[in-house]
Design a protein around this nucleic acid. Structure first.
Lengths: 346, 346
DNA sequence: AAAAATAACGCAATCGATTGTGTAAATGGA
DNA sequence: TCCATTTACACAATCGATTGCGTTATTTTT
């Protein structure tokens, strides 16, 4: 009559007529346990398929060895790559990854914080919901000194640990690239203006124009709500219908950029000759669209790994303390020039 | 001097001069606790930001309320959508989602089973690694009667709970579609032959040919190792160089199909007139390629939800027992006809 | 041979929450 | 007024693993 229960240390102890503490010590070869006992315990453990209950270990040791990941939506190319990176780094360190989605909703993000806290995750890796404008809802973690590492969509003002890309520089470089290709009137697709990443890309865009002595035309700066393909069609239509339409577009994501290409092509606009376009993220679709989309590439998997490593360093401060010396890590981006913007102006 | 420790039920008890059990009962409004006590406990709990420790609850109740998800790679469109579905359903049910990747490696999948078991997940949702050919490594779960639900890449022979699509039918329909468009020599890109999904799609393909009295040409059935874009270039090159090249391709994934379109176009082959192509998965890239790729659409998010619901029903058998009545759930697919295969043969 | 040292292990507390059982005080009825 | 309920709570065990401390034997030392 096997009970339908997993084997515990007590089961082994009973079977060997020793105490549970002896079994526990034997399994980790504690010096005060006799060799034959160790041998016997290990053999039986193997035989019975004993595996330590992580819940019990966590409770006792006060360490859950679990990292929480909160993202807007899992199934976006950039996000899933990020998680991929987190998971790899976490596995190497023996940590479990728990995931929740905010669906870009502030309320849901708030709920998720509770859920994560309830699970006593050792740390939290967060990419903010689009709606989120402050970080008070993270207080359970902040008050209890549980490390939070923000990634990509990071809080603007708050003093905290961040891993992101240099959005300003990326925006500058992308815009400058279009200028170098001969663009004179460059439009910009931006996102929610309270989100740092869009603000910074916009700032880079503006500075690039200024640096190259091009005038800023406010009517060319368009803010999408979520920068979807549908929105991009409308925005592009608006632009092309302007008395003097732009000759370049810098879009804050690839989805919108690709959509813009498709719509512009349908209107017979030649790309990149009449309209040069560059996107952001280096999504798979950027290589499929015709002409292929120039874009800014994220080191997304690496960002995930770095975020975890940073969190780990905060959880278990060790020799690699230099990693966290700077609160913020800003990674470089690469401009990937493809046909959608390359005019070969030599 | 606040200790850097999270508030427990005992802290509240001490502060209110009651026992921990009273606090525990008060928090859930147990009838044997006085109203003022309940009131006082709740207020203090709120004030101190008390939250039950899920680890302790799980250990005590022997229910982790955690579901494990094991997939080959998170950052693939289909997989991340699947996880998205699991996460949504899990959140509604108050379950946590723990994720691991097998990287399509059998060994890593084996390790992950241990890790998941150690965490005492209430159940497991698995999409098999490409390498995996048997399921003995799931014994920790099977032996302890912890539910496993396989999804998409499911074991072929094993008696187990599965959620998948009707791959045979999908293969049949996709092939038949090409036939209806006038194709006479249809090639097929398949995957690892021990993987059920590819075997079934192939079977559907073969039956469709037979049903329409078309000859089977073994040289047109090509098995990719991972069906990558690179592989597809080679396969397509081979096909186009045949003495009598095919006039249609049914690819078991979109990645290869899109790559085939790109290569064929580069060779000046007209699509769909000279070569009609249909893919599988309805990845985002399928809508971006030109001509747009016909494909077979998965209800991927829904598959994730169903997989979780099935797991939940196995974990907590309830009124919805009909869901698990059948070991296997096979979902229907839709043929999405786009320009890459539409010849309008009327 | 007696005392000291060592080896090998058991006991019990702990982590945080839950729950069956016990018990004191308060209330009720006769 | 005395017994019987009811109310409102405390005690202690439990979940599984860990660990400081104590306790036997056995061996070594003097």
């Amino acid at each position: 009559m096997k009970k339908n229960k997993t084997v515990t240390i007590h089961d082994l102890a009973r079977e060997l007529n020793v105490s549970a503490s002896t079994v526990s010590r034997a399994l980790k070869e504690h010096p005060s346990i006799g060799k034959k006992t160790i041998q016997a315990v290990k053999e039986l453990a193997q035989k019975r398929g004993y595996r330590p209950n992580r819940l019990a270990v966590s409770l006792r040791s006060q360490k859950s060895h679990t990292i929480g990941v909160m993202v807007p939506l899992i199934n976006r190319p950039f996000i899933s790559s990020l998680i991929h990176g987190v998971e790899e780094a976490a596995r190497e360190a023996g940590y479990q990854v728990i995931i929740t989605q905010s669906h870009d909703s502030y309320e849901m993000e708030k709920d998720n914080v509770q859920v994560m806290f309830d699970s006593r995750t050792s740390g939290l890796i967060v990419s903010l919901a689009m709606e989120t404008e402050n970080c008070e809802h993270f207080s359970p973690f902040l008050d209890n000194n549980i490390p939070i590492v923000f990634v990509d969509r990071v809080p603007e003002k708050m003093k905290c640990h961040k891993v992101s890309i240099d959005n300003y520089n990326a925006g500058f470089k992308a815009t400058e690239h279009l200028i170098e290709q001969g663009c004179q009137r460059i439009a910009h697709f931006s996102g929610a203006s309270h989100q740092n990443i869009y603000k910074e890309r916009l700032r880079g865009y503006l500075d690039a124009l200024e640096h190259h002595k091009l005038p800023v035309d406010e009517s060319l700066i368009l803010k999408g709500k979520v920068l979807s393909a549908e929105e991009a069609v409308n925005l592009t239509e608006y632009l092309l219908d302007l008395p003097s339409p732009p000759d370049g577009i810098f879009s804050a994501n690839d989805t919108a950029a690709v959509s813009a290409i498709q719509y512009a092509k349908s209107r017979g606009v030649k790309i990149p000759e009449e309209l040069a376009i560059i996107g952001f993220n280096n999504d798979p679709i950027s290589m499929i669209i015709e002409p292929q989309l120039s874009t800014v590439s994220h080191p997304s998997v690496n960002m995930g790994k770095l975020a975890f490593k940073k969190a780990l360093e905060l959880i278990e401060p060790g020799e690699a303390a230099h990693i966290i010396k700077n609160q913020s890590i800003e990674l470089d981006t690469d401009i990937i020039v493809r046909a959608s913007s390359f005019r070969n102006p030599t």
